[in-house]
Design a protein around this nucleic acid. Structure first.
Lengths: 224, 224
DNA sequence: ATAGGATTAGAACCATGGTTCAAAGTTTGA
DNA sequence: TCAAACTTTGAACCATGGTTCTAATCCTAT
């Protein structure tokens, strides 16, 4: 799933050099992610990224094919981690509400804290068709995982009946939107924001009764 | 609040011409908004906008100072309408939950349906400093209005205690994110989406008990 | 120490796309 | 009908920014 970072046609000689090269690629990737987050993907220039990574603009192209690839790897890594987190939550034995909380926590962590992240769902438009397709595919898979989590909660009676697809999108929207207003120097920590959002977002699907298995009667949902 | 559409130094002669000119400006604005939504603000080119508005690229600049102004007017109009809707809701006498629902409905309407809208909160980055400042100011005002609505609901006991600021941001995030996935040709109508989202988003703050004035005991909020 | 590959720098290239311009066409008011 | 003002055009301008190129420098292995 996580393909080798080496993309080009480098015919590497020794193992030692390969290692060093790969490490450098990671450094650059992190620098790029930092710039992407700071300036926004569109505004981030290759020269700016190069400076952040402490190398010349031209040298960037020795390690990466272009801005596309840089952005792609950032997004790809992030989505992969979110997928892992969703799968881990799904496989756990805690109440679905807590599984959902775990996903929310991870999502915000990878969106706001991890150096690689923050641009996972943003600005996919600028990618070449094939790269974009890959990201969209994984992104959809992730969305489906969240949706499935909600549906499971409903089926178990832990959640109130609802349109799982729509609710999943609402949750992800609330989470993704944080990158628009979150500022590291702000008062609230990411962890605090995560708990606050989890409280609100999960409460929105929680069954009215404190039931654990009770097949609650259908409410809301069908107002026209 | 809604400043005259005439911005330039046009010394208009007759009233008749002024009217016609202003109407033309509106047509162009609508065309621009359509392109902004279809292609995204960044990808939307002046040539594309010109074609959509049925005039030459150069002619665009006779009516508008540039892409900035075009985008600004689109956003400004949309935010103004949302502000109006929020104020109307606030002034009404219905339960706060319904006031909130009204705001949600209006927000989605102006974001997804009105030709002028859809880019209200998006891509503010590309605006010149002074223009951006104006939009941000209004956007903040709007966010505060939503926040106030939530706080009012809590004070009245209609809503459960919560971090109003955070919840407001979550709601707005969920709403704004719709522009990322909504497709006019999709199965759900905007109205249906609005009701579904309102159900979920309002339920998240609704007081546990069906109370109307009951000072519910503080729940959630402080998990650390 | 030295050849050869790996790495680097920085200027130059070039496509994109916002914008300007000068000239021509159209409408209006007298 | 005529002149002035308004409108329109399409080519050209130009800044931005991703990318390429070439020559120099650094490392590693022998």
């Amino acid at each position: 799933m996580v393909q080798s970072l080496n993309s080009g046609s480098n015919k590497i000689a020794s193992e030692r050099m390969r290692r060093k090269s790969e490490a450098r690629r990671l450094d650059i990737l992190r620098a790029a992610a930092r710039v992407f987050r700071r300036s926004g993907v569109a505004a981030a220039g290759m020269r700016e990224i190069a400076e952040e990574a402490d190398l010349s603009p031209g040298n960037l192209y020795y390690y990466f094919a272009g801005k596309d690839e840089l952005l792609f790897f950032c997004q790809d890594r992030t989505v992969d981690r979110m997928l892992e987190a969703a799968e881990a939550a799904r496989a756990s034995t805690m109440p679905v509400a807590d599984q959902l909380r775990a996903v929310i926590r991870a999502h915000l962590h990878y969106t706001l804290e991890e150096l690689e992240g923050a641009t996972a769902h943003l600005e996919i438009d600028m990618l070449a068709d094939d790269l974009r397709r890959t990201i969209i595919e994984k992104r959809d898979k992730y969305e489906h995982a969240v949706r499935a989590l909600i549906a499971k909660g409903v089926k178990r009676g832990e959640f109130a009946p609802c349109d799982a697809a729509l609710v999943a999108r609402a949750m992800l929207g609330a989470l993704n939107w944080t990158s628009r207003w979150y500022r590291p120097e702000g008062a609230q920590s990411v962890a605090a924001i995560a708990e606050g959002l989890a409280d609100y977002l999960v409460r929105g699907v929680a069954a009215a009764a404190p039931a654990k298995t009770a097949p609650v009667r259908a409410v809301s949902g069908g107002r026209k």
